[in-house]
Design a protein around this nucleic acid. Sequence first.
DNA 1: CTCGATTACAGACCGACTGTCGGTCTAGGA
DNA 2: TCCTAGACCGACAGTCGGTCTGTAATCGAG
Lengths: 188, 188
Amino acid sequence: MNLKAERGAATREKVLAIATRLFAERGYDDTSIETVLQESGLSRGALYHHYAGKDALFEAVLEATESAIGVKIAKAVRGIADPAAALLAGALAWVRLAGDPVIRRIVLIDAPAVLGWESWRAMEERYSFGMLKAALQATGAVPDDFVDLHAHMLLAAVNESALLVARGGDTATAEAAVAEFLRRVLKP
Amino acid sequence: MNLKAERGAATREKVLAIATRLFAERGYDDTSIETVLQESGLSRGALYHHYAGKDALFEAVLEATESAIGVKIAKAVRGIADPAAALLAGALAWVRLAGDPVIRRIVLIDAPAVLGWESWRAMEERYSFGMLKAALQATGAVPDDFVDLHAHMLLAAVNESALLVARGGDTATAEAAVAEFLRRVLKP
DNA sequence: CTCGATTACAGACCGACTGTCGGTCTAGGA
DNA sequence: TCCTAGACCGACAGTCGGTCTGTAATCGAG
């Protein structure tokens, strides 16, 4: 049971890569399973053998993307001792990452509508939001009662900046604005 | 040109109301034109005579909803002289409004994915965002360079709180958190 | 009042898409 | 060697958005 399992994994990976590209380029609705099939050279049956449906395929793509983001942000924060500085570094890294159209379209725009807000939120909790909340808690700058809500608001604010940059806004200004915004929120 | 125009307007209004309810209950994707047709007793031809397509119908629904929101928030702010206080009042009103599933699903979740982020942003600009930005500018609490970006971030943050409340969070806590958040952002 | 133009509405029809289902093939353990 | 499980195949059904042709009623000009 090795060759078979490997082949299966390779197929899943291939489909995942192609689907990621297509979802990012055209969005979820305008990406047909048919196209994924054509570009991957796979048959319908094969695809539906690995993924339960179009939704499930998207969810797998999202999961992989979020995971990759988590790794990159963790790398950007590594070695920074001061919690506030780490928070800022992470936020800025995220703003830069969201310039990537893949992340922009899949994670920020389509995901809530496709998965439903609940599932989307649950996944964010496991990745970017979880990290941000822990960092915010560590700074101790926010009353305990508000840590959760303020973490949500901060993440939303930073996401918004990322989207603005991705639309073609000035990156430098956006990063300065995020830094200033964060400074204000962290200083009572 | 009166009876005909009136009948047309009445039809549009009727379809709009039904579509609004369905979009809010099931979301854009899971609402079929067929269902709208059944519930309104209209024919396909009639609907496509008034609206260019499903997208256009959704856009009309969104426009009407945003407009209604604008009116309500303007009412909540009316008579408050202090810009910062008005900003806070408007934000809290918006948080409460977003408890309405219609607003939640249509404006905050589906709109960006259906219209595309650009068009969604353009419409927000004409309504809630436009008001928030003007109010923020009036407070003079934020450097001119950052007014636009901070307005975006604030709106996103407040939207997020609204979504959390709508999911079943504690309204009182959320409002307190928003107030505190706003206070921090406005005080350099 | 007459008559062409315009508008509201009707519903058959088409193409595209998603998801299902019975079946084939092959690797690898018993 | 045999037999099971998993990878893969492709025809098919059902749904849905959108188009097209046709009909009835209203409107405005003459």
